[in-house]
C-alpha cells in the first residue's frame, strides 16, 4: 500500500470519526429558528473530506517514500520548541528564550562564540526590550 492510498484511508477514518463521534459531541442541539443549525456545515465538510479521501485511496499513483530520518529530526526540533514554550510559561520569556535559542544553536552545530552570543543572548534580549520596555506589551 502506498503512502498515497494510506493518506486516503486516513482521511476516510478521520471523516467517520468526525461525523459519528466528535461533531455530535461538540455541537449543541438548537431549537431551529429558520436558519442553518450549527452542526450542518461541519458535518458536510467532514463528509466531503471522507469522499475526497476515498477518491484518493482508490487512485493509482507512484509510490513515494517518507524520509523518516529527516522527519524524526524535525519532530525532535518540534519537541524542543514545545519544551521552550512550556518553560516560558513557568519561568518567563527572559530566561526561557535565551535558553531555547542556545540549545537550538548548540544542537545544530553552532560553536562560534560570536554567533552563539548574538543569536542566543542578543536576539532574545533585544526582542524583550523592544516589546516589554519600549512598547509596554507583556511577554510571558
Amino acid at each position: 500500500m502506498t503512502l498515497h492510498r494510506l493518506t486516503g484511508v486516513f482521511f476516510v477514518i478521520f471523516a467517520v470519526a468526525m461525523i459519528w463521534g466528535v461533531i455530535p459531541a461538540q455541537t449543541e442541539t438548537v431549537y431551529p429558528d429558520g436558519s442553518i443549525p450549527p452542526e450542518v456545515l461541519p458535518m458536510f465538510y467532514a463528509a466531503m473530506i471522507g469522499l475526497f479521501g476515498a477518491a484518493l485511496a482508490c487512485q493509482r499513483a507512484e509510490a513515494t517514500a517518507l524520509d523518516l530520518r529527516q522527519g524524526a529530526k524535525t519532530a525532535g526540533f518540534f519537541l524542543l520548541a514545545l519544551v521552550g514554550v512550556l518553560a516560558m510559561q513557568h519561568v518567563g520569556f527572559l530566561l526561557a528564550a535565551p535558553a531555547l535559542a542556545l540549545v537550538l544553536l548548540w544542537l545544530v552545530g553552532e560553536r562560534r562564540p560570536l554567533w552563539l552570543a548574538l543569536g542566543g543572548l542578543g536576539g532574545p534580549v533585544l526582542i524583550w526590550t523592544v516589546f516589554e520596555v519600549l512598547l509596554g506589551r507583556l511577554l510571558p
Binding site: V91, G92, W128
Partner: peptide, 8 residues
C-alpha cells in the same frame, strides 16, 4: 514569581 515581574 517571574523574572519580568520582579524586574518591573
Amino acid at each position: 514569581m517571574k523574572l519580568n515581574t520582579l524586574l518591573k
